[in-house]
Amino acid sequence: MAILDLTAKSSGLIRCPVCALVTPSPENHPCPRCATPLHARKPSSLQKTWALTMAAALLYIPANIFPIMTVVQMGQGEPKTILAGVASLIETGMWPLAMIVFIASVVVPLGKIVILIYLLVSVHVGLKTYIKERIALYRLMEVFGHWSMVDIFLVTLLTTLVKMGALATIEPNRGVSFFGAVVVLTIFAARTFDPRLIWDSAHDHG
C-alpha cells in the first residue's frame, strides 16, 4: 500500500473528470473510455476562476442598484431593488419569506464570491493550514450555489400571475438580467476552480 501514498498527478496518472477512469495518459489526450480531453488539473483554473469571480462581483453592483420588479397595487407602487423587496417583506410581517429571499439573493451570491476569493488567495500564497476547512467551504459552495436562482424564478412566476389590470400588476425590471448573470457567473466560477489545488499548494511550498 505504501506505493499508493501519493496523488494521481505525482504518479504520472490522470483521473478522467467525467468517467473517473485513471490512466497514464499524456496531458490533453482523449480519455480511452469516454473521449473527454484529460488534464492532470483543470487548465488555467486560477486565471479563469479569478476572471469569472471578478465579473460576478462587478455585476452584483448593478444587480442591486437597478430594481428587479415593480408591484403596482391600486395604481400605487414603485420599482424595487432586491434589498427594498426584502425590506417590504419584513414590513408586511413575512419574516420567513424575507429570510429566504435575503439568503438566496444576498448571502449565497456574496458568500460564494468571498469564499472563491479566499480560496484563490490561499492557493496563491500556498497556505498550509486549514485544508479541511477550506475543502468544507468548497463543498458548501457546491451544495448551495444554485439556490440563488430562487429570485429569478420568483420574478417570472409573480409577473405571469399578477396581471390584474387596475387592481394589481407586477412587472419585471432590468435588475433581473444583471442578477441572472451574477448567478450564472458564480456557478461557472465554482466549477472552474480545481479543489485539488488546495492540497497541491499546501504541499508544494513546503
Binding site: 496523488t7 498527478k9 483521473r15 473517473a20 475543502i135 479543489p195 492540497w199
Partner: peptide, 8 residues
C-alpha cells in the same frame, strides 16, 4: 483517484 484531492 479522489475527485477532490487526487489521492490514489
Amino acid at each position: 483517484a479522489c475527485h477532490e484531492c487526487d489521492w490514489l
